[in-house]
Amino acid sequence: MQFLRYSLLIIPLVIIIFFGFIILNENNAREFVPIEMTKFSSTTLDNKNIKNSDLPDTYFLNVWASWCITCKIEHPFLLNLKSNGIDIVGLNYKDTKSKALGWLKELGDPYSISIFDYKGDIALDMGVTGAPETFLVKNGKIVMHHLGELNQEIWEQKFEPHL
């Protein structure tokens, strides 16, 4: 009887510790496995042809669109990165050229190159689920992939260790 009474406390305690363990391990457990960067051949927003070999060895690729609200939120942070000399390639996703160019003109252009992915094919091959998403590509391999807004905290946590 005594044991039964205390098991009322012990069982939840074990469950709680288990969940604590899962949550605290979340970041370590899901380490990113590098995958091959998608081969593509497309055009830029200013109508030049572009393919993999035109891109530098190491670059960040940011998926964005003018209809995406979170992109607007992370935009100042990208501009900040650019002013610190970091090379960001933009992948304009399921957007129209005029709207995309208007956005860059109005808010500033953090991208060294802007790839235009009207149908979202390149993004689909890269495993993009929506905008914004950010990739780090090193020597033809994707070494990091972040879904959602990019900010200082995530930058330090996920991307800085790879630089």
Partner: peptide
Amino acid sequence: ITLFALTILV
């Protein structure tokens, strides 16, 4: 919350 409630009950 859970442990507090169960402790009192126990």
